[in-house]
Structures are given as C-alpha cells and as structure tokens.
Design a protein around this nucleic acid. Structure first.
Lengths: 335, 335
DNA sequence: TTTGATTTTGGTATCGATACCATACTTGAT
DNA sequence: ATCAAGTATGGTATCGATACCAAAATCAAA
C-alpha cells in the first residue's frame, strides 16, 4: 500500500478529458498530439502536480532509463570526476545513474551486480577488470551494453573506455630515463587491489628493462601499507635509505607524490636536483600553482562522458570496441 | 519489447512446481516456506539463473527499495566519503542509491528532483539548503523521508544530519585569537554557491566581532575566483600584500590551505611563526605526515552512515529531527 | 477420531504506465 | 460532393511482481 496516493496518469487524463495514452504521448512524443489537447494535458499536469511513475513505465516498456555503475570506491577522487561526467551526461539525456561501491571486494561485486540487474538497467559501467566466475557468467549473458572504464582490457567484455595504464607508466619511465636519471624507483602500485596502478608499474618495469636498468619497487607485496600522502613520506625510510643513489621516484599517484615532496622539503632534499618526482592523475594537487608536479594527466571526466555516450549509443561504441582516450605527460618542475 | 527474455518468477515457479507467490516468499520471507519447497525453489532459481525484477516489485508493493541523492558535485572529496558511507550502508540493507549531481545549479536541482521522484524512491538525501520555490513545494508534499546533510538548517524540511558550519568557523577563529594572532583573514567561502563555506565564514566573522577585531575576507563577491590550491596561492597577492600585518589565515578548505602553505614556502614565509594557517575538512592532505595542517576534522563518512540509518528508520530519526555529528578541531603544526 | 487452531499454499486482482491495434477525424485531390 | 491517404485518439491487453483473501494441509488437544 502506498503511504499516500500519487497522482496517476489516469487522474491527469480525466481532468484533461483525454485518454491516458494521450497523456503518455504528451510526455514522450508531444509532436504527435494536437496543440489543443497538448495544452489541456499540460495544464492538467501542472494543476495536479503530476510526476510520472517510471517504475510502471519501465515494466511495460522494458526500458528502465537507468544505468548502473559499480565502482570500487567513490572516495577516490579520480573516479569522482568520471562519475560527475557520467551522471551529468546521462541526466542530460533523461537517464539516471544507479551507483554502487564494492569497497574493492570481489564478493561484494557479484552481489552488487545482482542487485543492479534486479533493477533492469539499460546498461552497466564497471571500474574493475578482474571479475569472479559468477560475475563473468552474469555479465556475458547480458544483452545490455557493458562498459569497462579506466583501463583497456586485452579482451573487453563488450565496450571499454579508458587509456593504457601500462603505456602511461612506460612513457613516464622513458621520460625520466631520457632526462638522465640513473636510479629510478617506483612507489606504490603493489597492492593486489589496484589493477590500474599495477599496470602502470608494469609499464615502468618494462621501460627499465628495455634500458638495461634495474627496477626498484616498493612496497611489493600487498603488505597493507598506508596509502596516499603517508606512503610518500614512508618512502624515504624504506627506499631511499636503502639505496642512497636513488635519484628519481615515480609515484603511483599524485597524492603519493605530494607525500614525497613534503618529506623531501622537510629533509632538505633538493627536488628536482637530487631527486626527481613524478605523479599520476593530474587532479587538484598536481596543478601548476600547487606543487608544480610532473605528472600524467588523465581525462577523468572525459572518460565519464565517453562512457555515457557509449551507453546511450551502444552500437556505435561497439563498432569501436575499445575507446582509447589517451593521457598527457605533463612535464613541470619536479622531474 | 524486451531485447531478450529474462527468466521470470513464473518460470521458476513452474520448474519448482509451486505457485509464483511461493517463489516470492522464498526470496523475501524464507522462514514462512516449508523447507522442502524452499529447496526446490532455490534449486530452480539457481538452475535458471533467475534475477528478480525489482521494477515490477516496486510497482506492486509501491516500495522501490531505492533511495535518491542529489549532490552538488561528486568531485568534491568531502561528499565522496559521505556517499561511500551512504551507499555502503544502504546496500548492506538491500537498498540502492540513485545518484544525481546538479553542478550547483538550482534549476537543475528541480529537474533532478522530478527525475528522482519519477523513480518513486523510498527516501531522498539532499546536500543543498537553498531550494527553488518549485523544489520546496515538491519536497513538502512528500511523505517519504527527506534528509538534508552536511549542515544543520534552522528549520529542517524533515531530517537533518550534519554539524554546525557556523560553530566550526567560530571555534577555529576563537582558537586563533586565543593563540595570540592579531590580524586574522578568512580565505574563500565568498561564493554564493557554497552555502556551507559561507556559514563557516559567518562563524569566523562573529568570533572576530565578539573579540573586537576586524574581519578581513577574500574574495568577497562571487567573482569566479580559482578554487582549491590556486586560490591559496593567489591569496598572497591580493590579501597579504594589501595588509602585511596579517599573521593568520583561516581557509575555507584544506585544499585552499595547502595552496597557502605551498606559496608560503616558496616565499620563505615562516609558518606558523609569521603566519598561522588553518584548514577545514580533515581529509587526505591534512593528515599528520602530509602538511601537519591545523584543521577542522569533519565526520564525512559518518554523515553518510547516519543518513542511511535515518532513511532506513525515519521514525526514529524524525524523533530527533536534527542529528548533530559534531566536528573536531585538530591543532597541529600550522596554527 | 474429531475438532479447532495454526501454518502453508495458491488464485486472482492490482500497481501505473506503454504497445498494439482499431477507429474517428482531417486534409487534399478529383 | 466523394474518396483515398494520412493523422489524431482511445480501448484493451500486457509487463512481472506483490497484496489480499481463501483454501488446503498440518498439528495439537480433547
């Protein structure tokens, strides 16, 4: 039982003295209704404060006009801008976004997907690559568009929007090598949870191997290290102390890089003279007037917008399969 | 017409040789079904890969098990942690979150609300205080819980969860005054868009007036200033140059404060000796090993969790009306 | 064994919109 | 004035679940 009674299409139709279908048409295809009736209906809608019921519409048309998104976490600011772009673009087209976060837990992911599918979304956005068996089975049986974002899987389930994390890591390492750094460490990206960071680290390792250099990464195992700025600070103790010759550090994220920069200042380490520092992300803290951080700028919002477009026009997107939005290596003051 | 046919409850019921209602009960109130049939049904669900259709369920039960959230922007990291808490708590209780961002535009807010209501949510979360006439009218006609978060309005529409931004600004100003600062400026919060920042600034002004001091705020009009770190950097040119005696600056956010700190270091201004700096937020950059920033720590995620609880048990929450989660003035190295 | 109370189960109407088809109404050409 | 072709409109079945009520099965007590 409804707690109160919503105004229904029937009420509007009665007041405007038309059939319900005409009300429906006024809302969805107004050009197919004569101006006289259209006005009457619109006045009735206004007067009654009618708000259409999309759950009913979804049931009869089997198109919910809702898209589902499963992200590992919303807190991560990189996803936030993507979600903004996604939500904004979808809303402009009359669709909503059903958001679920998994807290990086694969079991939760399957539950979340089930719950999402129960809402019969018109499409789904995923931020993780590695799916459980159950998840994959569910996903492959779907006919709605499935967009994987923020990475470019070798074999996308359906559509992928993002850029190559591997290549980004590779490029930045090449940049540091090219500017004469001899001992380059990679900080972060060792966590099993963050597949994207790991890919960047792999790119770094590939570049160093190609140049005949020895990669130094820390932390390596998933040793539940502090993340963000604190990791940057811890770096000095664990890594630079171990090898004082280290003259460059590639960080898995801008936040980590800022941690390194702060600690470097505290210790009077000259950046970039004695130590080059690079980040990844290009949001907030990396900006010019902030830390002047050399970083990889990632098109976070553009990924959201492009994903939305892929969801709205899956056939066009499927023709491309993989939509690579690239990234930008921005050389500034720290490396 | 659906693009492919989903398995329906009828299919499951037929396979298990029971009525559809029994399948429904197995999913919602399993204890009311005999073990034998429950097993049969569960096996059938498994075998067919049945995923219930909540849009149909919502229609017949008039409970959608979805909550709507309207936020000004997702990118703002403070909201992000709140959304994480909200989404996580709701999901654990079997509900989803329908998320919409308004990009700070009141017109968009009304549209977003209409779109949200069309989904017949079981409750709504709002982050903005000032609503358009149309928005308010819609909101007051609702019987579902409406939770306003991140501030404590004088007259909440229904339920409010947050803390007093005014008091937070007041307290921080008192702290700076108490530690002997003579000329205290407030940086940011002049924007018409950010009601919360403005309240903090008002708290600051009240404290200074009470102490017989002259408030200095910048920027004042909504002059479309750079936000975040860049604003912090710009501060020196516009404010400190104007009044060299300024010995403390209260920033509307941690990010702005970090901008000030960076620029201070660049200019060799001694912090906190010559200039005290305080922030607001307590996320990321404010952390101990980062900038050691004196700040107001805000319970971002707790707000999300408490909002979720309010939505799930509105009667209990309505009894309290306003749920004040407080904040914490954290004195560290910069002020 | 019978009766009454309790639990389990299913049939059918219903939620509020849209799809599909049929009918009424225009309009322009002959 | 008449007819064909097209446009506007409405009736009714339908989507897939749940609510409500009634019937059937089970159990306990006399």
């Amino acid at each position: 039982m409804g707690k109160d009674k919503w105004v229904t299409m029937r009420d509007v139709a009665d007041l405007a003295k038309v059939g319900t279908i005409t009300v429906s048409r006024v809302l969805r295809t107004p050009e197919k209704v004569s101006e006289a009736k259209r006005d009457r209906v619109q006045r009735a809608i206004e007067e009654l404060g009618y708000v259409p019921d999309n759950t009913a519409g979804a049931l009869s048309s089997s198109r919910s006009r809702v898209f589902g998104a499963i992200v590992s976490t919303i807190s991560d600011s990189v996803f936030a801008s993507t979600l903004d772009g996604l939500s904004g673009t979808l809303r402009a087209a009359g669709f909503e976004l059903l958001l679920t976060s998994t807290a990086y837990d694969p079991d939760v992911e399957e539950d979340a997907l089930r719950a999402l599918l129960a809402r019969r979304p018109d499409g789904i956005v995923l931020t993780s690559t590695s799916h459980s068996a159950g998840t994959s089975k569910l996903l492959t049986s779907l006919t709605i568009p499935v967009v994987e974002i923020w990475q470019l899987p070798a074999a996308p389930l359906d559509i992928a929007v993002g850029f190559s994390n591997f290549q980004a890591g590779f490029d930045m390492a090449r940049h540091l090598i090219g500017s004469g750094r001899k001992t380059i460490a990679f900080l972060g990206g060792g966590g099993l949870l963050d597949a994207r960071g790991r890919r960047r680290r792999e790119g770094y390792m590939a570049a160093l191997h190609a140049a005949g250099m020895t990669p130094v990464t820390w932390p390596n195992e998933d040793q539940d290290m502090p993340a963000g700025i604190e990791l940057g600070a811890a770096f000095f103790d664990h890594c630079l102390n171990a090898n004082p010759h280290t003259d460059a550090v590639m960080c898995v994220s801008d936040t980590v890089a800022v941690g390194v920069l702060c600690e470097a200042r505290r210790r009077n380490v000259d950046v970039p003279g004695a130590l080059a520092v690079s980040g990844f992300g290009g949001f907030d803290v990396a900006r010019p007037s902030g830390f002047d951080l050399t970083t990889i700028e990632v098109p976070g919002e553009a990924i959201g917008v492009a994903s939305a477009e892929a969801l709205l026009d899956p056939d066009a997107a499927r023709a491309r399969k993989v939509i690579d939005l690239g990234y930008k290596l921005v050389v500034r003051g720290t490396a």
